[in-house]
């Protein structure tokens, strides 16, 4: 992969980040009333803090100046002060972000581990019994809303069987090996809910990509080489089928973050998703804005990663 390709992808990421920030800011600017009206009436906030916030957000400046000020502040990590938690927003988010990333990462991994073999098997045996079962399960999987699957799992594994803890605890009160086991146990359900939802749509993507690739000429060439069906599938079919799948996975990322918010809320996972909900319920505007912004940045970041993967998987792209 060439360096120009990398740089070009980076250059494309910047306008989309700017675009997203404009959309966010527009929403904020269009919001009726004073988003900081809460400040004046909230006795917990000293008047000077309220005044400095008003000044920082420049509520009386023209829109474009306000946008630039706001963007510069966001990019500096200067995200304001959380009224509800009484600490700086950036500190708060940095505390919560790793948990969210770990849950999402583990869920993606689970999704790939399930969907890749299932999708490949289904795609190489189209309309077989296995394919039909896999297809039906995939349909059920992505028609089940994450909040319902989450409750179902809690009902089965926590309430009925009592195998897994119902809610996630940040402070486990254990150390070493025991801490690890507890940590894994309490992560199983959130990761499974998110991962299986993702995996369900991934199965369909992989299947259709494999279906498209197996009938291509170079797969016949590979078969004529006498390298065995296994190598034909893994080296020649799966390897190229992954290229479109990567793009589709990147397109799915916004949905994944939505699922992460719901999952964190159900299992009380202390990530930025549950932070967003609790900030909304307590009218904590700086936190709400910052978390939304972080989610937007994450989407752009994952799209960038997908682009890089794409260039790495498909030599034709990187040379163009």
């Amino acid at each position: 992969m060439s360096r120009q390709y990398l740089i070009r992808r980076l250059m494309i990421a910047i306008p989309s980040l700017l675009g997203i920030s404009i959309v966010l800011f527009t929403v904020l600017a269009l919001a009726p009333g004073d988003p900081f009206g809460e400040l004046a009436s909230n006795p917990a906030i000293p008047p000077e803090v309220a005044a400095s916030l008003r000044a920082k957000f420049g509520l009386d400046d023209p829109v474009w100046t306000r946008y630039v000020h706001w963007l510069v502040a966001m990019l500096h990590g200067d995200w304001g002060f959380s009224f509800a938690s009484r600490i700086d927003v950036d500190t708060l988010i940095l505390q919560r972000l790793p948990t969210t990333l770990i849950v999402i990462g583990a869920a993606q991994l689970l999704a790939i581990l399930v969907a890749l073999p299932v999708g490949v098997l289904a795609g190489t045996r189209p309309y077989s019994l296995f394919d039909q079962i896999a297809n039906t399960l995939a349909f059920i999987g992505f028609s089940l809303p994450t909040f319902f699957t989450g409750l179902l799992l809690i009902l089965i594994f926590s309430v009925r069987l009592d195998w897994l803890p119902m809610v996630y605890r940040a402070d486990l009160g254990a150390t070493g090996w025991r801490w690890f086991v507890e940590e894994v146990k309490q992560s199983i359900m959130p990761v499974a809910v998110l991962g299986l939802f993702q995996g369900a749509s991934l199965v369909r993507y992989v299947r259709s990509a494999v279906l498209d690739v197996v009938r291509l000429d170079y797969v016949t060439t590979a078969r004529s080489k006498g390298i065995g069906e296994r190598k034909v599938i893994t080296r020649h079919v799966v390897r190229t089928a992954l290229i479109p799948v990567v793009t589709l996975v990147a397109l799915q990322m916004p949905v994944v973050f939505g699922g992460a918010i719901v999952t964190e809320q159900i299992f009380r996972v202390p990530g930025i998703g549950s932070l967003l909900i609790s900030a909304m319920l307590s009218n904590d505007t700086p936190v709400v804005m910052a978390v939304t912004f972080v989610f937007a940045c994450l989407v752009v970041l994952f799209n960038l990663i997908a682009d890089i993967l794409y260039g790495w998987l498909d030599p034709r792209i990187a040379y163009r």
Partner: peptide, 27 residues
């Protein structure tokens, strides 16, 4: 069987197809 056939392919009998543009794996 497939394993026996794979010993014949390429080693004893090889094939060249019509479409050179699509017969090679692009990646």
């Amino acid at each position: 069987g497939a394993a026996e056939m794979d010993k014949i392919r390429a080693r004893e009998i090889a094939i060249v197809f019509q479409e050179p543009m699509t017969s090679l794996n692009p990646v």
